[in-house]
Deep mutational scan, measured.
Amino acid sequence: SEEEEEEWRRAKERGEEIIILGILWKPNDEEAERRIKEALRRV
């Protein structure tokens, strides 16, 4: 969703871990980033 995407962007800017759509994303975690982008597209 729009607000999840916004939340994720803010976490990326701050360089902090975030759990979004049930996926743990850490800074520079390209695999998780790809999965999150896929999940955001499906929503």
Score class of each variant (00 low, 15 high):
residue 10 R to V: 10
residue 27 P to F: 04
residue 11 A to V: 08
residue 3 E to W: 14
residue 10 R to D: 08
residue 8 W to Q: 02
residue 16 E to V: 11
residue 37 K to L: 15
residue 3 E to G: 13
residue 21 L to W: 06
residue 8 W to S: 01
residue 11 A to P: 03
residue 26 K to N: 05
residue 5 E to H: 11
residue 16 E to T: 09
residue 29 D to K: 01
residue 4 E to L: 15
residue 18 I to E: 02
residue 39 A to D: 01
residue 33 E to R: 03
residue 3 E to F: 14
residue 15 G to E: 05
residue 26 K to R: 14
residue 41 R to E: 14
residue 13 E to L: 10
residue 26 K to H: 04
residue 38 E to P: 00
residue 24 L to D: 01
residue 43 V to A: 13
residue 14 R to P: 01
residue 29 D to Y: 03
residue 19 I to G: 01
residue 39 A to M: 09
residue 42 R to A: 14
residue 17 E to G: 06
residue 42 R to G: 13
residue 36 I to W: 03
residue 23 I to M: 02
residue 6 E to I: 09
residue 30 E to C: 00
residue 14 R to E: 09
residue 5 E to D: 10
residue 12 K to R: 09
residue 2 E to D: 13
residue 20 I to E: 00
residue 10 R to E: 08
residue 32 A to N: 02
residue 28 N to T: 04
residue 22 G to M: 09
residue 15 G to S: 07
residue 27 P to R: 01
residue 39 A to T: 03
residue 7 E to H: 12
residue 16 E to P: 02
residue 29 D to W: 06
residue 23 I to N: 00
residue 7 E to Q: 15
residue 15 G to R: 05
residue 6 E to H: 06
residue 3 E to K: 15
residue 17 E to R: 07
residue 37 K to V: 14
residue 39 A to I: 08
residue 35 R to D: 06
residue 14 R to A: 11
residue 43 V to W: 13
residue 31 E to V: 08
residue 17 E to H: 11
residue 43 V to Y: 14
residue 1 S to N: 13
residue 33 E to A: 05
residue 14 R to S: 11
residue 2 E to A: 13
residue 22 G to F: 14
residue 24 L to H: 12
residue 14 R to T: 08
residue 20 I to G: 00
residue 31 E to I: 07
residue 41 R to D: 13
residue 39 A to P: 00
residue 9 R to H: 11
residue 8 W to K: 02
residue 14 R to D: 05
residue 14 R to F: 08
residue 26 K to G: 05
residue 18 I to Y: 09
residue 5 E to V: 10
residue 4 E to H: 15
residue 35 R to M: 10
residue 33 E to L: 07
residue 32 A to S: 09
residue 12 K to V: 10
residue 30 E to R: 08
residue 34 R to H: 08
residue 17 E to N: 07
residue 1 S to R: 12
residue 34 R to D: 07
residue 32 A to F: 00
residue 39 A to V: 06
residue 26 K to S: 09
residue 12 K to M: 13
residue 8 W to D: 04
residue 11 A to E: 02
residue 20 I to H: 01
residue 25 W to Q: 00
residue 6 E to Y: 12
residue 43 V to G: 08
residue 13 E to H: 06
residue 29 D to G: 02
residue 9 R to Q: 12
residue 3 E to R: 14
residue 41 R to A: 13
residue 27 P to M: 02
residue 30 E to D: 13
residue 25 W to S: 00
residue 22 G to W: 05
residue 18 I to L: 04
residue 21 L to C: 11
residue 4 E to D: 14
residue 39 A to W: 05
residue 6 E to P: 03
residue 43 V to T: 07
residue 20 I to A: 01
residue 8 W to M: 05
residue 6 E to Q: 08
residue 25 W to T: 00
residue 1 S to D: 12
residue 10 R to H: 11
residue 17 E to K: 05
residue 17 E to P: 15
residue 38 E to Y: 00
residue 36 I to K: 02
